[in-house]
Amino acid sequence: MDWDDLRIFLAVARAESLSGAGRRLAMDASTVGRRIARLEQAVEAVLFAKTPQGYSLTAEGARLVGPAEAAEQAAAAAAEATRGEAGISGLLRIGAPDGCANYLLPQVARSMCEAHPGLEIQIVALPRVVNLSKREADMAITVSPPDTGRLTVQRLSDYHLHLAAHADYLDRHPPIRAPEDLRQHRMIGYIPDMIFDRELDYLSETGVETATISSNSISVQMQAMRSGAGLGIVHDFAIPFVPGLRIVLPGHIALRRSFWLLRHADDRGSRRLSRLADALIQGLRAEVSRLEAMVLPAATGRT
């Protein structure tokens, strides 16, 4: 059995479509279909059932996933052995929530690529947890540790959030001296039924029940605040990116959250991914510290 056929089989199993697998493999969907047909002929079994939702594994296909993933790990280990330890090359795909992906990972990725010229990094910003079982990414950053799944979990870094608004908004509206004053103001936050992790339910910390402007993207919320549309809970590390943004009620509303790094349990033996994970952890911690230090301690209530 050809390993390359198994590689294509895994891509279809994870993407649940020929076109999705083709995009991941940089291959035409019709070619993917022909290769799957060739593999099915070789194993004398139908591996996928075509449904309105896409391609789903048959019982025979599900039995092939384990051996195919074992072959994938063996191929990766062989590639690592030939590359040696001098530098890290190849593709790394990182899944992350919106705030981390927009305000932290670009700088961290730059440093990692400068240290390893042969490295290519893809940042996947999704309003949900990246599915590592389907290999949507090599590793994922989340705002809470998972309860289930064959994953290795490492604490990445703590970070802080505060209520903030643009100076233009604050100049045009009544002063805010206590949390009760917020009832006179417009709030910006997440769409309630699109909050994919309980740690993102920031609005409840303000005592205000509903947001006037809401989005499932923290970047959209930040742009709304930049325009002077209202107040919202923001990451301290994102504040330096929005000149004019001011922290409000630091002594009353101050949140701390954590980022977690997730990897598929089968990747524990990969020296390459372990080295990349270490570089990512060090880089992200340093970037959170650098950006948060730019926010005046007097304004945040921290020392």
Rank of each mutant, 00 (worst) to 15 (best):
P174N: 09
K134Q: 13
A140N: 03
I121C: 07
S144W: 09
D171T: 15
R150K: 15
E136Y: 08
R155E: 05
I141P: 00
P117C: 06
V129C: 06
E114Y: 07
E114P: 00
A140V: 05
L132G: 01
T142Y: 02
I123M: 00
A167E: 15
D158P: 09
V130P: 01
Q154D: 14
G118F: 02
A167G: 08
P145F: 05
R150V: 12
P117D: 08
L156F: 10
E120T: 01
A167Q: 15
A140Q: 09
K134Y: 07
V143I: 15
L151G: 04
L126P: 00
G149P: 13
S157A: 15
H162V: 11
A115V: 12
R128H: 12
E136P: 04
V129W: 04
Y159T: 07
S144F: 06
L119V: 08
T152K: 02
L119D: 01
M139Y: 08
A125T: 06
V129N: 05
H162N: 14
H162L: 03
T142V: 15
R128C: 04
L132T: 04
T152H: 10
A137E: 02
L119T: 06
A165Q: 01
R150F: 14
D138K: 05
Y169F: 15
Y159I: 13
L170H: 13
E120P: 00
D158S: 15
M139Q: 08
D158M: 06
R155C: 07
P117V: 09
T142C: 14
A165C: 05
E120Q: 10
A167T: 15
S133Q: 14
A164R: 06
A164I: 04
L156Y: 12
H116F: 05
V153S: 02
S144D: 13
L161K: 03
R135V: 03
D171K: 15
S144Q: 13
P117Y: 09
H166L: 02
V129T: 06
Q154E: 10
I123Q: 05
V143K: 05
H162E: 06
L163A: 11
L126R: 13
P127Y: 09
D147P: 00
H173E: 13
